[in-house]
């Protein structure tokens, strides 16, 4: 397995809506979910070859999805170990209806306060570490070209690729280590380990349409073709926000230094196992 580690520098508070959620309480994952990272990197790829950003249409028009092709798996991005981060929870006045303009009126004859109070969460972080893996090293060099590019990330926010690592070769091994990414709960449960200390989130993965693996390392990445994605499949994942004294023993892809990618996550995102 081959991997590129991307260091993202957020320039803004980021919101990755936890779904399902409520309209009034906009909660964020404390990390970049795999699907969001995939769409972000796809857009950076498009920018890096001089293409314009895709505008998306409203939902009922069945808007196209732009994500990385299945050749590359984006595994999400997570606050770096030594860095500062926090989930900022705040209050925002949102509109209840969109058919009036009383929020831009300077002179208002009758008070038509028509707002609803939201709580809104933002992930504010100094640095996020993201991972992209692939079976073959060919093509991963395109991710190194994304260095210095930035784009909107999440429902709210913006981030820049501050640094892209060399193409790293990862070994498959079973070892006790803290995962660098989220960990599918199914893998933890099936290994019969009692591990506390992780937060549990509902996440989603893309369901690819049929067999769309392409030989080209650019197709569906450095062009403006919409991705062939059928929909989203939910899964449950654990996220360790702190190191444990006794980390779980799992099958990892690792460089034996600081990258420990659970094999179960890669298989799950590829749709090879169901959880």
């Amino acid at each position: 397995m081959y991997c590129v580690k991307l260091t993202l520098q957020p320039t803004a508070g980021l919101t990755f809506r936890i779904l399902p959620g409520s309209i009034l309480n906009i909660a964020t994952y404390p990390f970049v979910p795999p699907t969001t990272l995939s769409g972000f990197l796809r857009r950076l790829g498009m920018l890096s070859v001089g293409l314009e950003l895709p505008e998306t249409r409203i939902n009922k028009d069945n808007p196209p999805t732009y994500a990385l092709p299945p050749r590359y798996q984006a595994l999400g991005a997570y606050p770096a170990k030594e860095s500062w981060f926090g989930v900022h929870r705040t209050y925002r006045k949102g509109m209840r209806e969109f058919n009036h303009d009383s929020f831009s009126k300077i002179y208002q004859e009758k008070d038509r306060a028509n707002f609803q109070l939201h709580t809104w969460e933002y992930l504010i972080a100094e640095e996020l570490l993201g991972y992209v893996v692939a079976d073959k090293p060919e093509g991963l060099e395109h991710f190194q070209d994304l260095e210095a590019y930035g784009c909107k990330l999440g429902k709210e926010g913006f981030a820049v690729v501050a640094e892209a690592s060399d193409i790293l070769e990862l070994q498959r091994t079973t070892v006790a280590a803290m995962p660098s990414t989220v960990l599918p709960m199914e893998a933890l449960l099936q290994s019969n380990q009692i591990v506390g200390g992780c937060d549990i989130y509902n996440l989603y993965r893309y369901q690819q349409l049929g067999d769309v693996l392409s030989d080209s390392d650019r197709a569906g990445f450095l062009d403006s073709e919409p991705s062939s994605i059928e929909g989203f499949v939910p899964f449950v994942a654990g996220y360790f926000s702190q190191d444990l004294s006794e980390p779980p023993v799992l099958e990892y892809y690792t460089d034996h230094e600081d990258i420990y990618i659970p094999r179960a996550l890669v298989n799950l995102l590829r749709g090879e196992v169901y959880a």
Binding site: W84, G86, H88, E156
Partner: peptide, 22 residues
């Protein structure tokens, strides 16, 4: 006023004033 709290994984914490981008 709106304030932002930040922390590190080893437990240091900071609280600061904020002009929210929104």
């Amino acid at each position: 006023v709106e304030k932002v709290k930040l922390e590190t994984k080893d437990g240091q914490a900071l609280e600061k004033c904020y002009i929210s981008p929104t």
